[in-house]
Design a protein around this nucleic acid. Structure first.
Length: 561
DNA sequence: ATAGTCACG
DNA sequence: ACGTACGTGACTATA
């Protein structure tokens, strides 16, 4: 972003009618024309109905027009109603207006010979754009009614709609990424990759494509005759993922080297080499897209590039975070993250006394869990016991069973089952909540978050055991993950508002599910800290469980974290 | 286009 | 007896 240049503006105020205004090709003339509409577009006494309003609003912002809303966004309305479906306009039009739209490819073709909208005859563009506006307008009352029937009008009006401009501004701001740092690191990784590659070839007795899972499987299990345990994939291939290879690392020195090769290649191709190409030449910054209508739980998703999966767990990977820098010497990065938010929300929602007590005591929660399930005083909890308890805590939010837990912890299935049984003895209220949630899902066909976000579970009463147990885990996980998503969205809206009201220069630039990152103007550091420490913990008021937020500051994202 | 793999919360 | 972890996006190989 600038994602594109404007070719035309299209308005519709009445069904079956639309008005198309071509925008000149010369950018100064384009800006001048768009500014003819500035007062209208910036008026806050009109409702702007749009399909993915953030897109149009962002485009206008690049032209210097600040659309304030309020909006009615058909894409987001539909996302709330049917979070597991698609939300594109052609789908909505077919599903709700029973009309098949003309595909954009019929206007501009596809592939190499694809034209831009500018090269299409005015009459055709006007017709196509007019349909867009008209259908969006017609969809509004339908989706508005659906939201009301599903009791999500408030969630929509007070969270999702206000979030549109918050995300727009975050994307517009972007983040500074240091390309020189990454170029140096790329060379280092290249050396490592070439070195490991030769070592793998030596162990294998000849070269092959290590990036091909198929060839890796054939080399390991056919040419080298290493023992293969377990099932093959659905397509009959050997599974060679990190779990499987780590399991058999003792078998041969080549295994660790293949994993090393994979690790370095992943870092280089997905992050180190890719991120600098995403720097916008006009702004010198990277403007990710935060998709508000993708994750069925209510979370955001980030793409082009995805800035929600930048490495941190691994030493070589976390190096990449050093490339994320504040905008200038006068700025500093601040990262604020919710501590164990999903576990706290399970405690809150289930009302489990023991769990609430553990959080209220302020003790290390995983340690407190270990003390309970192993029945030892908290001072005597071993590192292993704490680690196991942490994994159980984590697994619980996914509704995982004994098989998976045993695999995660490297213990027997029976020990894993005992652990889970003990866990539910200690946290009986949690067990009750999980059973009730599944029962609710079975009778109503959906589950909901604390703020009323819904997700339908079509398979919850399926006769297919695999399908129904999948749905049960989703039923347990969605209210937790979704409530955490609701909470951080509210916090983002409040923080954005405070920054605006106080005319601050600092900006919110990233959201990573339980973390917010700010590019802070140094003189405002204490003000921002205070705002964050007020808005994040108090996003959902009157909770029984304490909500804690950790803050870090630094000259790059790694330091700040 | 799909599968496999792996990065994050 | 057996078993499936929840939610994403990007890259590479392969059909």
């Amino acid at each position: 972003m600038p994602i594109a240049e404007a070719v035309g503006l299209v308005f519709s105020v009445k069904a079956h009618e639309a008005y198309y205004v071509p925008v000149p090709e010369k950018q100064d003339e384009a800006t001048a024309l768009i500014h003819e509409f500035k007062a209208l577009l910036e008026a806050d006494n009109k409702l702007w109905i749009g399909q993915n309003a953030k897109y149009d609003s962002t485009l206008m912002k690049w032209y210097g027009v600040d659309i304030k809303g309020p909006y009615f966004d058909t894409m987001i309305a539909h996302y709330l109603c049917e979070p597991d479906q698609r939300h594109k306009l052609d789908y909505l039009t077919e599903a709700y207006l029973d009309y098949k739209m003309v595909a954009i490819e019929e206007l501009i073709g596809k592939g190499k010979t694809q034209l831009t909208m500018r090269n299409v005859k005015l009459e055709k563009v006007a017709e196509y754009a007019g349909e867009d506006a008209d259908f969006t307008l017609q969809l509004k009352p339908i989706l508005e009614k659906k939201l009301e029937e599903m009791e999500m009008t408030d969630l929509y009006q007070s969270i999702e709609v206000p979030l549109i401009n918050v995300l727009r501004d975050m994307e517009f701001e972007g983040v500074r990424i240091n390309p020189d740092f990454l170029a140096d690191y790329s060379k280092e990784l290249e050396k490592e990759i070439l070195r490991v590659e030769q070592e793998v070839y030596r162990e294998a007795g000849g070269p092959f494509n290590i990036a091909s899972p198929k060839q890796v499987g054939e080399v390991l299990f056919e040419r080298m005759k290493l023992p293969y345990k377990g099932k093959k994939s659905s397509t009959g291939q050997y599974v060679t993922d990190v779990d499987k290879l780590t399991e058999m690392a003792e078998e041969h020195a080549i295994i660790a080297k293949i994993l090393e090769y994979r690790k370095f290649s992943k870092l280089k191709s997905t992050y180190v080499d890719a991120l600098p190409t995403m720097i916008n030449p006009k702004t010198g910054r990277v403007h990710s897209n935060f998709n508000q209508a993708r994750a069925a739980t209510g979370r955001l998703a980030s793409d082009n590039p995805n800035l929600q999966n930048i490495p941190i767990r691994d030493e070589a990977g976390r190096e990449i975070r050093k490339a994320f820098e504040p905008r200038s010497e006068d700025h500093i990065l601040l990262s604020a993250d919710y501590s164990q938010i999903e576990l706290r929300l399970i405690a809150e929602i289930s009302g489990d006394e023991a769990m609430l007590e553990a959080f209220l005591s302020g003790n290390d929660f995983h340690k407190a869990t270990a003390a309970k399930v192993y029945n030892v005083p908290i001072e005597e909890v071993t590192a292993d016991q704490r680690r196991n308890a942490k994994t159980v805590n984590f697994s619980i939010t996914y509704g995982a069973g004994a098989t998976n837990l045993s695999r995660q912890l490297g213990i027997s299935r029976k020990d894993a089952k005992d652990l889970i049984d003990q866990y539910f003895v200690q946290f009986a209220g949690l067990k009750r909540y999980m059973d009730e949630t599944v029962a609710f899902a079975r009778s109503h066909g959906y589950v909901k978050t604390m703020l009323g976000r819904r997700r339908e579970l079509r398979d919850i009463n399926s006769r297919n055991a695999l399908a129904s147990s999948n749905a049960e885990r989703v039923a347990i996980n969605t209210p937790i993950q979704g409530t955490a998503a609701d909470m951080i969205k509210v916090a983002m809206i409040h923080i954005h508002q405070a920054i605006k009201e106080q005319n601050l220069q600092s900006r919110m630039i990233l959201q990573v599910h339980d973390e917010l990152v700010f590019d802070v103007y140094k003189p405002e550091l204490e003000v921002i800290k205070a705002i964050v420490q007020d808005k994040m913990p108090n996003a959902i008021p009157n909770l029984k469980v304490p909500i804690e937020v950790g803050i870090g500051v630094g000259n790059n994202w790694l330091e700040a974290h």
